[in-house]
Amino acid sequence: MLKKILALCWFGYSTLALAGFEVVALGVEGGVNSANLTAYLIRADNQTQYLALDAGSLLPGISKGLAQGSFPQVTDAVTGDDQPERYIFRQLIGSYFISHPHLDHVAGLLLVAPQDRKKTIYAAADTVQTLHNHYFNWKVWPNFTDAGNGARLGIYRLQTMRPRQRVTLGFTGLTGVLYPLSHAGTLSSMLLISNENQAFAYFGDTGADALEQSNHLERIWQDLAPLVQQKRLKGMIIETSVSNQVADNALYGHLNPTWLLKELKKLEQLSGGAGSLQDLPVIISHIKPSMKQGAASDVTIRQQLEQGNDLAVKFVFMQQGERQQF
């Protein structure tokens, strides 16, 4: 009997230790195609609601996810009168995090607002102000928030996150800490998501510190390093918008493979040196399509990242609608 009890306790501990995150990619590109703009869903393995990480394309990605079986919990029995797509964005997305207010990160949110239900949008102060002043203003779009000018429809509550302060993210069961990023004059942000003793990092658009003349990424690496050492960082989503063929003066606040690898090298050094990042999942986001004959940006970027990957990280290229566990 004692052996059975110990075995059950060990099984419970192992299950907790292995608990992680589910990620669904609703949009993976960085422009041009309005049906595939940056948006991801994340939830803890022990929770039912997702946190949306940006919202460039929602419905197109949800539709692709349904077609690929990425929402097995959505059945006719639970959706009722709603179409599955509507049920997912209304009932399963519990809250939104918007990294910065560029259109390719918020377009999907604006479009679903008329049929969404009340929930909170989390963002840095500059993003909240831009959403109020330039989107939800009755000129570009009705004011679906509970503050700002004109009639307030009250669907969304815009919650300002202060840098480096932990916030409970609605009813998702997740907490998050916001870190500033520099994006060619626009204030962007990274969200460090936590559930119990596990963490996941989501980066909005960002340039390299050396080009942006900032230390934002350096400060992030300093805080992520202990999580890497303790094997608590389950993965990250970070952009590599263009290939190495794009000159530094034309990056406009984005990363290419060379600069991402340089930045990850800093994290490796802070995390214990060579080999410390081995098998760390790094999901590559925001790839900009080339729109040229015979030139596939994602293929080129993948090749350039793998060629320079002496870090042994696990680069992941999720497709729209795909679901993965981390």
Rank of each mutant, 00 (worst) to 15 (best):
K4D: 11
I5L: 15
I5P: 08
C9V: 15
W10T: 13
F11A: 15
F11D: 15
F11R: 10
T15L: 09
L16Y: 12
F21G: 13
E22I: 07
V24T: 12
V24M: 11
E29H: 04
G30I: 01
N33K: 02
S34W: 11
T38S: 11
L41I: 12
R43E: 13
D45P: 04
Q47G: 09
Q47F: 05
Q49W: 14
L51S: 10
A52V: 10
L59H: 08
L59D: 15
K64D: 11
G65E: 09
L66A: 13
S70R: 02
S70H: 10
F71N: 02
Q73Y: 03
T75F: 09
T75W: 10
D76E: 04
D76Q: 09
D82Q: 04
Q83N: 07
E85C: 04
E85H: 00
Y87A: 04
Q91N: 05
G94V: 01
G94D: 08
S99C: 03
H100N: 12
L103A: 10
L103S: 07
L103K: 05
D104Y: 08
L111D: 14
V112G: 10
V112A: 13
V112T: 14
A113H: 11
V128N: 02
Q129F: 08
N133T: 04
H134S: 04
N137C: 03
W138V: 00
F144C: 02
T145N: 03
D146L: 02
A147D: 08
L153M: 14
Y156K: 02
L158N: 05
R162A: 10
R166Y: 08
V167C: 04
G170A: 13
F171Q: 05
G173E: 02
G176F: 08
G176V: 06
V177W: 04
L181D: 01
S182D: 06
G185S: 02
L187I: 05
L191H: 03
I193W: 01
N195I: 01
N195S: 10
A199T: 07
A201F: 12
Y202T: 01
F203H: 05
F203D: 09
D205A: 13
D205V: 00
D205T: 03
D209R: 03
A210H: 11
A210G: 07
L217H: 13
E218C: 06
I220K: 09
L227Q: 15
L227E: 13
L233S: 15
I237K: 05
I237W: 08
S241A: 10
S243N: 13
N244W: 05
V246K: 13
A247G: 14
D248V: 08
Y252A: 14
G253V: 05
N256F: 09
T258E: 12
K262V: 11
E263Y: 03
K265W: 05
S271F: 14
A274L: 10
L280P: 00
I287W: 03
K288R: 15
P289Y: 06
G294D: 05
A295M: 10
S297T: 06
D298K: 06
D298S: 15
D298Y: 14
T300F: 13
Q303G: 08
Q304H: 10
Q307V: 02
Q307M: 03
G308L: 01
G308T: 04
G308W: 02
D310T: 07
M318I: 02
Q320T: 00
G321A: 07
E322G: 07
R323A: 07
R323I: 02
F326D: 11
